[in-house]
Design a binder for these strands. Structure first.
Lengths: 223, 223
DNA sequence: AATCTGAATGAATGATCGTACATTTAATGA
DNA sequence: TCATTAAATGTACGATCATTCATTCAGATT
C-alpha cells in the first residue's frame, strides 16, 4: 500500500501531475465519498471526478471503465479492512480472549469505521448478490477472517466447562459486528461507535461470561 | 391488502385486462424478481415489464415514475413483513419465551424468506443510506418490532436471576436475524434456512439458557 | 348492438451518462 | 533549451433508458 493520500496538505497546493498510484488512490477515495453521498445506482463518473476536483476523462485514463473503478474501490476497501484486523491481531496477546477483544476493537477502529466507508460497504453489499466479483470481496467471504474467528472461539469454548458449537458462535459474533455497522448506517436515530462496541461485547459476554463483559475482555485496565 | 395474486392459476389464461390492484401487485412481484436477478442499479422498466409479460408502457401507467414503482415495492415488502410477524405473535402463547420463539421462527417463514425477497431487501438496504424514504421503511426502523422485541427481552431477563440490559440483548437478537439473512444472500457457500434458524436460536440460548437451546424454546414438541 | 371507459400497447422523444480521442500541459532527461 | 513521455482535459459520439402519447382493444353499460 503506497500511502500517499495526503494531497490536501495545507500550504502548497496539490501537484497538478501526480504519480499513477497516488492519483488512483485519490480517485478511489472520491468514489467512496460519492457512493456514500449519492448511492451506488446514482454514482456517475462526473460525480466522482468532481469530488476529486479532476476532469471526468481522467477516470477512464486510470481505470479504463466505470466497472473497473468500482471493482478497484471494493478491492481497496477489502484490503484495507484486512490490513486492519491482521495488524490488530498481531499486536494482541496469546490468549484467545485477548485476541477476540483485539479483533472486535479493530472492527470499530475510527480509521476504518467512518460514515463514508460504512455507506460504501453497505452499497456494495446490496449489489453483491448478483455479482460474483463483488460477492467474493465482501466481508462474509473473507475465509481467513472466518477461520481465525472460529479458531479463537474453539479455544475459548475449550476454556469453559460448557458445551457449544464454535462455528455457530463465531458466526453469531461476526454477524453481530456486521449488524451493528448496518445499524449505524440505516437507523434514523443511530447510536454511536461506543454503544456499537458495547453491543458487540454484550454478544461476546453472552457466550463467554468468564472472559468478557460489555466493556471488553476481563482483567484489563479500563478507561 | 387485496390479495388477488393468483393470476397463474392453471387452466384459463390470465385475463388480458385486470383490476388496478391486481395488476399493480403483479408488477411489484415482477420488480422483486428483477431486482433479485439483475441488482438494483441495473433494473430497468423494460426488464420489469418483460418479467411480468407486459409492455413497459404499462408500468408508467400504473406507477407514474420508476421511483414510484420502487418505493411501492419496498412498501409492499415492509407491509408483508409486518403482517407476518404480527400474525405469528398473535398465535403465540403468553410467555415471553414462547413469543420470542414465535417471532424468530416467523422471520424464517418460507413464504417471506425466499431468495428473491431477501435479495430485494438487501438491494434496498444498500440504497437506503442516502434515501430517507427507504431508510424509514427498512427493517431496523420498524419501531413496533423493536419495542415488541425489547418488551419480550425485558420480561425474559426478569425471569432469570442474572442482570442484563434488555435493549442491548434485543438489539443483538434482531441483528443476528438480519445477519443470517445477509449470509444466506452474500455467502458463496451459504447455509440453508434450517442452519440459519439454528444460528438465531444459538444466540437466543446464549442470553437465555434457561428458556432456549439451539432448536428453539425448551419444553416443546420437536420435529 | 352501439357506446363508453379505462387498461394496454409500442413507437417516438429527450435526457443522461459512459466511452473514445484529439489536444493541451507538465515533468524529465539529454 | 529542446525533445520526449506521460498525465490531464474537455468535446463529441453513441447507447441506454425513463417518459410521453397517440392508438388499439377489451369489457361494461345502456
Amino acid at each position: 500500500m503506497d500511502d500517499i493520500g495526503d494531497m490536501a496538505k495545507a500550504g502548497q497546493a496539490a501537484p497538478r501531475k501526480l504519480s499513477r498510484g497516488a492519483r488512483r488512490q485519490q480517485l478511489i477515495e472520491a468514489t467512496i465519498e460519492t457512493i456514500a453521498a449519492r448511492g451506488y445506482s446514482r454514482t456517475t463518473l462526473t460525480d466522482v471526478a468532481r469530488h476529486a476536483g479532476l476532469s471526468h476523462g481522467l477516470v477512464n485514463f486510470h481505470f479504463q471503465t466505470k466497472e473497473g473503478l468500482l471493482t478497484e474501490t471494493l478491492k481497496y476497501l477489502a484490503e484495507e479492512y484486512r490490513q486492519n484486523w491482521t495488524a490488530a491481531l498481531e499486536a494482541a496477546g496469546a490468549s484467545p480472549a485477548e485476541q477476540l477483544d483485539a479483533l472486535l476493537r479493530s472492527d470499530f477502529n475510527p480509521a476504518i469505521c467512518t460514515n463514508a466507508r460504512l455507506s460504501a460497504w453497505c452499497a456494495f453489499w446490496g449489489e453483491a448478490q448478483c455479482r460474483p466479483m463483488y460477492q467474493d470481496l465482501c466481508g462474509s467471504n473473507d475465509d481467513d477472517y472466518n477461520r481465525t474467528l472460529e479458531d479463537i472461539c474453539t479455544r475459548l469454548v475449550a476454556e469453559t466447562a460448557r458445551p457449544g458449537d464454535p462455528v455457530r458462535i463465531a458466526r453469531v459474533i461476526r454477524i453481530t459486528t456486521e449488524g451493528v455497522w448496518l445499524d449505524m448506517m440505516t437507523m434514523t436515530d443511530a447510536y454511536g461507535p461506543a454503544e456499537a462496541m458495547r453491543t458487540a461485547f454484550t454478544c461476546a459476554a453472552a457466550f463467554f461470561p468468564e472472559h468478557f463483559d460489555d466493556r471488553g475482555v476481563l482483567g484489563r485496565k479500563r478507561l
